[in-house]
Design a protein around this nucleic acid. Structure first.
Length: 295
DNA sequence: CGTTACCTGAAA
DNA sequence: TTTCAGGTAACG
């Protein structure tokens, strides 16, 4: 559920709460063992015991809880996971799947209804990460970097934005919002974007993610921050989960379709299907524009 | 490449 | 009762 802005919100809150705190124990609740991806909780507990958290980093939707010996606890919240920092004596919330006991009795809890989230303990963060594209809020994310990921590809631009190997951290909310801001149809082939459209999409991605962070993330369903509080970004979305509502910009009715297996929301008037350049004679399908160079 | 599985609860 | 869900890996 959490995308880059939600994960970054957690990172910012969590770092000052756990930096300098010592781990006295770690445990996984019965029935939730899979979140350790095959590693045994007692073994991880033994490795963590006595270690101290130093900082919290983020890569895409992954969090790295850094330890004083260089090791990293890598957390992915997937759909419904959340990390909660709770003071000593706080009652246990439902769906707590794992917990770190900190010095002083405070707890860092991993709460996750659907049990899709994961926790890894590794020597270096990269060991726990799949192939990830550039960080969209970093300097390495340029229009050229975006185009490098899209050029020559026939898949829908929406699906391309969700592929973490292209750009790290975009999920279903921010993909729809970025496409709305850049007025691109979600089903347009990724490699068909013209130069001006690439620049607009690049700027839109930056903008929606920055807005999301500024509003503390979006809480449509399960997302809550480290205190259990909701974000505000859901009040600012332009199309996401606004099916049948009027578009803010043109009053047309927002539609919901499925692209790449995911619900996709867009304004059919602001984000029209772009026709291939019509050719009167030829019935042979043309490549849908774009520069077709090998990747 | 698109589709299915992984889980569970809330909403339709 | 059925459908849907901020994600991703494993299918075919």
């Amino acid at each position: 559920m959490p995308e880059l802005p939600e994960v970054e919100t957690v990172r910012r809150q969590l770092e000052p709460l756990i930096a300098g705190r010592q781990v006295l124990g770690f445990g996984v609740m019965p029935g939730a063992e899979r979140l350790m991806r095959g590693r045994s909780a007692p073994e991880v507990d033994a490795q963590l015991n006595g270690r101290t958290f130093t900082s919290v980093t983020r890569r895409g939707k992954y969090l790295g809880l850094n330890l004083d010996n260089g090791q990293v606890v890598v957390v992915h919240l997937r759909m419904t996971g959340s990390l909660r920092f709770r003071a000593s004596g706080h009652e246990e919330e439902a769906f707590t799947r794992a917990a770190f006991d900190l010095d002083g009795g405070d707890q860092l809890r991993f709460v996750d209804v659907r049990k899709f989230g994961t926790i890894d303990l590794v020597e270096r963060m990269e060991e726990a990460l799949p192939e990830l594209g550039p960080e969209p809020l970093s300097d390495e994310f340029t229009v050229d970097a975006l185009w490098h990921a899209l050029r020559g590809r026939q898949i829908a631009i929406k699906a391309a934005l969700l592929d973490q190997a292209n750009i790290a951290g975009i999920g279903n909310i921010y993909a729809d919002e970025a496409l709305f801001l850049s007025r691109l149809n979600p089903e347009a082939p990724a490699g068909s974007l013209r130069p001006a459209e690439r620049r607009e999409l690049h700027a839109a991605i930056r903008r929606v993610l920055e807005d999301g962070v500024a509003h503390g993330g979006a809480s449509f369903r399960d997302y809550t921050d480290v205190d259990g509080a909701e974000g505000e970004q859901q009040y600012f979305v332009r199309v996401f989960r606004r099916t049948d509502e009027p578009c803010d910009d043109c009053d047309a009715t927002i539609r919901r379709i499925v692209v790449g297996g995911r619900a996709t929301h867009f304004c059919p008037k602001c984000q029209p299907v772009r026709h291939r350049n019509r050719q009167v004679k030829s019935t042979r399908p043309r490549r849908a524009g774009g520069t077709l160079k090998p990747r």
